[in-house]
Design a protein around this nucleic acid. Sequence first.
DNA 1: GGAACCTTACCACGCCTCTGTCAGGGTTGT
DNA 2: ACAACCCTGACAGAGGCGTGGTAAGGTTCC
Lengths: 121, 121
Amino acid sequence: MDGLTINQAAATTGWSPRMLRYLESTGLVTPPRTASDYRIYGPGELQRLRTLRNLLDSQEIEISDVGFAQRMRSQPDLQSAVEGWLDAPIAPPEGVADTADWLRFEQDKHERLLALAGGAS
Amino acid sequence: MDGLTINQAAATTGWSPRMLRYLESTGLVTPPRTASDYRIYGPGELQRLRTLRNLLDSQEIEISDVGFAQRMRSQPDLQSAVEGWLDAPIAPPEGVADTADWLRFEQDKHERLLALAGGAS
DNA sequence: GGAACCTTACCACGCCTCTGTCAGGGTTGT
DNA sequence: ACAACCCTGACAGAGGCGTGGTAAGGTTCC
């Protein structure tokens, strides 16, 4: 044994043992195990637990948020998809000749939908 | 008026009017308003709504996740705090002479805590 | 001026997150 | 061998998210 058990780690970090297991289930802090499946918290894990607590306290964020950030880290396609959406301009796309044309097109579409819903014979 | 009303926008994007208002409350899609507070969805907002739907469908993601990503965008200190935590090494910090010393220190700390909890006279 | 639309503000429901607690069974240390 | 610890799995409850509905009141169009 070269590390703390879950209750010892809980006592020194301020997390409850339940939460340490929960954090492991989210993939945020994953301690190694002994041969008989006891969790072993080394200095690295303890540091990570303490700084995680600081992070959650200082910023207004939740565990699941950090989990999502980690997920974006490991899935580049997800990251590029999200950032692509965020970076997309709010301005209208070019290629439609005139705003008035576009507007008429969309409003007609709306009326077609209403017609479908209403007087479908 | 040079844009669609909320019901028209809902019909062409597939979102419900309720959800368009909800998305505005999360800050993800914020249409401008008329003088009498009607929401006006222009081509840009419609595009954004459709691509948001694509994003949520294609990736395994929730609205609040996108909201969090946007929040990290606009708050650089939050972003650096989260990424700093994610990038922190799992390895023990240097500076402690010996792992055995550290271990003894932490375990002693544990016992002090137990003593406080148990036999506080 | 009335129908059809828009606004905000609530209530409600199902699901998920976070957190605690407990039961049944295996492991460690003295 | 016995206390004290660890494991998993389950139930439970507070609170937030995503979504729908509905009511009371202003706006727009014919």
